[in-house]
Structures are given as C-alpha cells and as structure tokens.
C-alpha cells in the first residue's frame, strides 16, 4: 500500500476514535442538563400540572417514579439511560405517550430532505457565483455577488420566508405555504412542498458560503503558482477549475460543514414558518412541554450529526491539503 494511502487510513481511524469520547461527554452533558431543568417528569407523564402534586394518588406517583428509575442515584440513572439509548430506546414521550424513537424517526426524513435540498441549493448558487465574482473582480458581477451576500446576511430568514409565501403561495398560488408530503406518497407534491422552505434556507446559507468562496478564490488568484501556471501556457479555465478552485475550497468546506449541521438541526424558524415537521420544531415544542426524553433524543441526534459532519469535513481537509494528514500522522 502506498504511503499516502496508509497515512490517510491512519488519519481517518484516529479521527473516528476521537468521536467516541466527544459523543460520550455530550451524553453526560445532555443528561445532566435535563436533570437541572425545573419540572417534574412524573407529573407530566401522568398528565398532571405541576401544582397538582397533592392530587396525584401516592401509590401512582411512587410507581411511576420507580418506573422512570428516578429513585436510583443519578450516575446509575445515566448508565441505564445510556444503555437504553444505545439500543434505540429513549423511553416514552411525556407529552404524546408514545415511544420517543417513533416520534423522532417520524421527523428525520423530513429534516434530511430539507437539509439536503437546502445544502444543494446553497452550493449550486454559491460556488459558481463565488468563482465568477472573483474572476470578474470589481465588475457588475462582483457587485451583484456582494449585494446578494449583503441581502442574505442582513435579511432575517423569517421575513424572507413570509415574502416568498405571500408571492408564491398566496398571490400566485403556485406553491403550498405549509407542510410536507413524503416522496413515496406523491413525489410531485413532495417537491412542491420542499421548494419554498429549501430555497429560503438555501439562499441564506449560500450568502455565507459565497462570501468565503469569493474572498478565498480571489486570494488564490494572486498566488505565485497561478501566475506560474498561466506563464506555462495552461488554459485559463483549467487553471481556475483545477488548481485555484481546489485550493480555495478549504474555507468553503469549513463553512459548508458548519452550515450542514445547522441545516440538519437548527432551522427552527423556517420549520415553524412553513409548518414543516422537522426535528428543530420538535425540539422547541419538546422544550416548551418539558418532554425530557424527546429533548434528550433530539439533542443527542443533533450532536452526533455535528460530530459526523465534522469528521467528514476533516477527511475532506486532508484530501484537499495533504499537509494536514502528514502533520497528524
């Protein structure tokens, strides 16, 4: 096996192993955080208000208290919770009285579709536009790109969302204003429901990526190796797309990585505005309702996702810049 490949495998394994303590630490944090938040899970589970404590028959309260293992020391509770969580058992939702895993899994596909579609839109808009703006520096194209970035960063997502709903759903009636339809049920309706929220989210992220992409690309264009490549007589398009683009992607990959995690778990406002049944909306509703098991499961999902995305970002770094894997190895 060639040395660079060996180094890459070693680098990948090292990064993968580092994920385990990170996730474990987060599980401890999530568990402790839930314990210190006010609210009695037994009362919630029994459907009583927090001021009803004296109305609940003692035997019922005590039985539920034991069933939830709240009578055990906190470290023991944690181990039980972790053991169950590893088997996909996060308990039952306090609010809905159904298994948490069912509630969470019912939201995962919608979240993945929205996140992926938004990311694709963001990359499709930002990378070519960023390259174009850098190449056409200080022309109308560059000014247009700067205007787009300014708009994307300055305008709140919920406002932009309201505007697109008004135009495309209410005035034109082309697209639905709310909801989600699974693709297996009706693919065309699935796309129609996805377009508006994905576009609003995607353009917001695109503005962020474009800013970095343009600056980095511009920076690379002034490097010696570009001048050398051109002096050697390489075609301009080849220099741009093969050499400059690859080197300018390091910062872009970081921004894409950060935004991927955000898109897959932090699009609460857009999900609320479009009444889209994603995980972010579920988390907010669970927090309001003190639905502890759901909060734990969703936060854990989001954290694991961030860790995995970061892992892949690290791998892409190493691919784009071999010095990174050499240094680690």
């Amino acid at each position: 096996m060639a040395a660079p490949t060996k180094r890459m495998i070693r680098y990948t394994l090292l990064r993968a192993l580092q994920m385990i303590p990170t996730v474990l630490l987060v599980t401890v944090a999530v568990f402790v955080l839930i314990i210190i938040i006010p609210g009695d899970p037994v009362l919630s589970m029994l459907g009583y208000y927090a001021d009803d404590v004296t109305a609940v028959p003692h035997e019922i309260y005590d039985r539920m208290f034991r069933e939830l293992r709240l009578d055990r020391p906190i470290p023991v509770q944690y181990l039980y919770w972790l053991g169950d969580a590893l088997q996909g058992d996060f308990g039952k939702s306090v609010v809905f009285r159904v298994p948490v895993i069912d509630v969470v899994l019912s939201r995962v596909p919608a979240t993945l579709y929205l996140g992926t579609a938004s990311l694709l839109i963001a990359i499709a808009v930002s990378v070519p536009f960023g390259v174009w703006a850098a190449v056409k520096n200080d022309t109308w194209v560059d000014h247009l790109a700067s205007g787009f970035v300014l708009f994307g960063i300055a305008v709140p997502g919920f406002w932009f969302g309201m505007i697109v709903i008004l135009v495309f759903a209410i005035y034109l009636g082309w697209l639905p204003s709310i909801g989600y339809v699974p693709p297996q049920e009706d693919f065309l309706r699935f796309l129609k429901h996805l377009i508006l929220p994905a576009t609003v989210l995607g353009l917001d992220v695109a503005a962020n990526i474009l800013r970095f992409q343009r600056t980095d690309f511009l920076d690379q264009l002034h490097q010696d190796y570009v001048r050398t490549a051109r002096a050697k007589g390489l075609p301009g398009q080849l220099v741009i797309w093969k050499h400059v683009l690859k080197n300018s992607l390091i910062a872009t990959v970081t921004v894409v990585g950060l935004n991927t995690a955000r898109l897959l778990g932090g699009s609460t406002i857009i999900e609320t505005l479009f009444s889209y049944p994603g995980l972010s909306r579920l988390l907010i509703e669970a927090i309001y309702a003190r639905d502890f098991p759901v909060i734990q499961a969703v936060v854990l999902w989001m954290v694991v996702l961030v860790v995995i995305v970061n892992f892949f970002v690290d791998l892409i770094y190493a691919y784009l810049n071999p010095r990174i894997r050499y240094a680690t190895a």
Binding site: M162, A169, I170, G173, P176, S177, I178, G179, F274, S275
Partner: peptide, 17 residues
Amino acid sequence: RIITNKAARQNALRAGD
C-alpha cells in the same frame, strides 16, 4: 394540521392549504 405559528396559520388559510 398542527400549525403552531399564527402567521403560518393565516397564510395557510389564505393560500387554501
């Protein structure tokens, strides 16, 4: 259809959703 946001409910009604 559970639409917790008032503005979203109003928009959905106007749009015929």
